[in-house]
Design a binder for these strands. Structure first.
Length: 877
RNA sequence: GGAGGCAUAGCUCAGUUGGUUAGAGUACUUGCUUGACAUGCAAGGGGUCACUGGUUCGAGUCCAGUUGUCUCCACCA
């Protein structure tokens, strides 16, 4: 007796077991066969201390779908997994734990001991996210798992840093940067998020020296006036022209500052006079550079006012200083007015603290020379964005980005390989750790700062394959095939990978960037910790199974668009899994033959028309699915499999097959073989989307491959296209549907069987489908007739037949005539529409032949139906 | 200020290069213990495809504009 499936679909019972088996069998490792084409993906490395969220779940699901499909299509498929050290995020977490558990700061421990703690943390939690990825069914090659701070990645980072430095593309400089006073580090432009916040516009008078005059400036950050070194007006502003070159007395501070003229000033905005604080505003910094202004930095790293320039405000927090200063200005009569306003405030993307622009010594990557080839490779289409529109986002950013600030004042990360000699002031950059100054022999100390996390992420597509060593993996799998990621990290990551690859590999990192949107909650809100509206994918897996989760994420949305995740969606996905499970159970419980008898297609002569029909339909499905996957239309491909499985296979084919499988003999066996063939085909097509349930069922069915995941993906075959039988069965389906509709309309229960008189030119087809008609159209008997002359019957017209069902007790002649008339009216409207179309000169001469033929065929059908309707009406009235 | 998305059934969304009578899930109505599945089966109602104009034999689909909405980038202090 054949192995039976459990009565209920219970994914928890088999998902882990199956995954473990795949791992043990080594299916996730790429096929070593050199003749197979390569397909490779590197995972967007999740943060090492993170937890799996819906965004990951979507990202991994899409990658796994591509990888599993390609593997089954015969590619040597490599999916490289790994995690990111996530500098700030991880350091914040460990510092927080340290504070809560021991009341200590990182400075209490010191750099070395603190880093030991972070590594402990990494070792403890690094496996958590990996195990969560496994729960999803991700078919990564775990033997190649990487970490952005492992030995190889560190080697790559140093190689890149030194190369760029030697080319002059990395430099150290005193510039204005974004500073997070909470994380105590510099940030890149990309790491600053702007939020609209209510604020005030303070109008302040600056007196002109040796004069009664004054200028009024307007500012949203009055505390920065401590660092003002000029006031600027527009060069052509007549109102202030006479003041240019004069000297102002900075209120409270009593420092003398010049009035300068600069085009940067907008005459119509504010008062037309701008205070210039080169140390605390990026634009002012530029103005200061142009005019050789002094840079006066008035804030410390924690955003308190410095003792050097702070005067009485020294040591105050920036907001406290603002309040005090405003009060003092008011007391001194300098404050003109306060206008409420709304302005954009930059915040730290990790901790949401308002960032402070300030000048500081930092390391930068010079972007312009790097951006050029990175733009070219996208513009030429060598790197393709999918959907295409995201290449615009990319190009726009790449064309306008400033130099990249890469140094971070953190401890967790790749320490910058620069070494300073305090004796002679020499600085050396080296791939190896060095201790002795090459110029004076003095002792060297290494730069304290570490690199931006994204600096190492940018190398991920080649560092994970072994670069800078010339490895076999690099040769075989680089450039990678596709990068799958969300549109939210195009700037952070995708752009930087592309220019890094162009610079260091001289080649693109991947051919396609497949972009997806965000997973939102049922109300369309972004899932976030603070809102508490996040849905935990692991809980969903526990309740509904990984397959249902994957299905819900892969279906019902277009590439690049955000999607909503709801109970409704996951339940619908689970229901589909349940449907497949039960259909499979039904097939299995009717297979008593040996495997060999059930495998493969039935011979042509044994096949019934419905067998040929479902085989043709399945064959067509394989084409649709393969085409859609090729075009990254994953949702469409899955929807096609869904409706074929449910509507075509379960609701029609299985029901049709029931009339034969309970018998014995050749016809019955052909039905069973067809069931096994098509069901197996469905499982294979579906496997990349729902890997667990398809494997579980595959193993229970007669099968040839050790695992479904290494079986061949179904492809289209012209020889399996049975056009005639396909049309025949569709005529029968049309007839059955029409009969059911008529019976339902008249409230005849399915249990009430009735004779079925059929007048048709497809006699043979109806005879061959007799059993099906009896079963699915509640017919007690099929009678082929040349005409039905009694008037006790409901008549039903389709393009293939006119059918009569004697139902004298339920028939209401008035109603029946009205219905027939209504139907005839609709029919005639259609005929008129098509005739008009076909008589249109333009249409007939310009439309493609196939479209015209289609219209003609349609017209023919309608004309046949009209004839039938007219006959029925004539008889009744 | 710049760029982009979205606007289709009550709700959530598909609709691939323009080509049958615009689809799905869900909700709703009616009937059904039909040889696996009520997480199911059958039948059904429900849409001026935001608006205006254009291109075309033909437009939900392409173009221009309008309105509403969301997002990203820039940052006029």
């Amino acid at each position: 007796m054949r192995k039976e499936l459990a009565k209920n679909y219970a994914p928890r019972e088999f998902e882990d077991r199956i995954y473990q088996n795949w791992c043990e069998k080594g299916y996730f490792a790429p096929d070593k066969d050199e003749k197979k084409p390569a397909f490779s993906i590197v995972i967007p490395p999740p943060n090492v201390t993170g937890q799996l969220h819906m965004g990951h779940a979507l990202d991994e699901t899409l990658q796994d779908i591509l990888v599993r499909t390609k593997r089954m299509q015969g590619y040597s498929t490599l999916w490289v997994p790994g995690t990111d050290h996530a500098g700030i995020a991880t350091q914040i977490k460990v510092e927080e734990a340290l504070r809560v558990n021991e009341g200590l700061t990182r400075y209490d421990l010191g750099r070395e001991k603190f880093l030991d703690r972070v590594w402990d943390w990494k070792n403890q939690y690094g496996s958590r996210i990996i195990n969560q990825l496994k729960k999803l069914g991700s078919s990564c090659d775990w033997s190649r798992e990487r970490f952005t701070m492992d030995e190889g990645c560190s080697k790559a980072v140093r190689e890149v840093f030194v190369n760029l430095y030697n080319k002059g593309l990395i430099y150290r400089g005193y510039r204005i940067i974004n500073w997070c006073p909470r994380c105590l580090t510099a940030l890149s432009d990309a790491e600053v998020e702007y939020t609209e916040q209510p604020g005030s516009f303070w109008h302040i008078r600056y007196p002109v020296k040796d004069s009664d005059e004054f200028v009024t400036i307007a500012t949203t950050r009055p505390e920065t006036m401590l660092g003002d070194t000029a006031v600027a007006v527009h060069p052509e502003d007549d109102r202030y022209a006479h003041l240019v070159g004069k000297t102002l007395i900075l209120p409270i501070v009593n420092r003398e500052i010049p009035v300068i003229a600069d085009e940067y000033v907008e005459r119509d905005f504010g008062t037309g006079c701008v205070k210039i604080t080169p140390a605390h505003d990026p634009n002012d910094f530029e103005v200061g550079k142009r005019h050789g202004l002094e840079i006066i930095k008035v804030m410390n790293d924690d955003a308190t006012i410095s003792s050097e320039y702070g005067g009485k405000y020294a040591g105050m927090d920036r907001y406290e200083a603002r309040r005090e200063l405003v009060r003092d200005l008011e007391d001194g009569g300098y404050l003109v007015k306060i206008d409420p306003c709304s302005h954009n405030v930059g915040t730290c993307y990790r901790c949401k603290t308002t960032v402070e622009p300030l000048t500081s010594d930092q390391w930068f990557v010079k972007m312009e020379p790097l951006a050029k080839p990175a733009l070219e490779v996208v513009k030429s289409g060598e790197v393709k964005f999918e959907p295409e529109r995201f290449s615009k986002t990319y190009i726009n950013w790449m064309e306008n980005c400033h130099d990249w600030c890469i140094s971070r004042q953190l401890w967790w990360g790749h320490r910058i390989p620069a070494f300073y000699c305090d004796k002679c002031g020499n600085m050396e950059v080296s791939k190896e750790d060095i201790t002795v100054c090459s110029r004076c022999g003095g002792a060297l100390r290494q730069e304290e700062d570490v690199l931006d996390t994204w600096f190492s992420s940018a190398l991920w597509p080649f560092s994970t394959l072994g670069w800078p060593d010339k490895t076999e993996d690099l040769k075989r799998y680089y450039p990678t095939s596709v990068l799958v990621t969300g549109y939210d990290i195009i700037f952070f990551w995708v752009a930087r990978m592309i220019f890094s690859a162009m610079e260091h590999m001289g080649e693109k990192p991947f051919s396609t960037v497949f972009i997806h949107g965000l997973v939102r909650d049922a109300q369309g809100r972004k899932m976030s910790k603070s809102l508490g509206n996040g849905i935990d994918p692991l809980k969903v897996i526990d309740q509904f199974g990984a397959d249902a989760l994957r299905f819900a994420l892969a279906t019902g949305n277009a590439p690049g668009n955000d999607m909503r995740f709801s109970d409704e969606k996951i339940e619908s996905a689970r229901n589909f899994a349940n449907k497949l499970w039960n259909a499979s159970r039904f097939v299995l419980m009717n297979l008593s033959e040996e495997d060999e008898e059930l495998l493969g297609l039935p011979s042509e002569e044994d096949m019934a028309i419905e067998d040929k029909w479902i085989i043709s339909r399945f064959n067509a499905l394989t084409k649709t699915v393969n085409d859609n996957i090729e075009g990254y239309e994953i949702g469409v491909a899955l929807a096609e499999i869904y409706s074929f499985t449910w509507d075509t296979f379960c609701d029609w084919y299985i029901e049709m097959a029931k009339s034969r499988i309970f018998d014995t003999g050749k016809s019955s066996l052909a039905a069973k073989r067809t069931l096994v063939y098509v069901l197996t085909g469905i499982l294979k097509l579906l496997h990349p989307y729902m890997p667990f349930i398809t494997e579980e069922i595959y193993q229970a069915l007669p099968h040839t491959d050790e695992s479904i995941m290494i079986s061949a993906y179904p492809t289209y075959s012209e020889s399996l296209n049975y056009k005639t039988e396909k049309e025949d069965v569709e005529r029968i389906i049309g007839a059955i549907t029409a009969i059911r509709a008529r019976r339902a309309e008249m409230n005849v229960p399915p249990s009430k069987k009735a004779k079925l008189y059929v007048q048709t030119k497809y006699k043979d087809t109806f005879i061959r489908a007799e059993k099906i008609l009896l079963k699915l159209a509640s017919a007690s008997e099929l009678i082929l007739t040349e005409g039905y002359d009694k008037d006790d019957a409901v008549s039903i017209a389709t393009d293939a037949a006119v059918m009569y069902i004697p139902l004298s007790e339920v028939i209401d002649f008035e109603k029946e005539i009205a219905r027939l008339r209504a139907e005839k009216k609709k029919n005639e409207a259609e005929i008129e529409r098509i005739e008009k179309k076909l008589s249109n000169e333009g249409f007939v001469s310009k439309a493609p032949a196939a479209v015209i033929d289609g219209e003609r065929a349609k017209l023919k059908k309608y004309l046949e139906v009209r004839e039938a309707l007219e006959a029925s009406l004539k008889k009744l009235s």
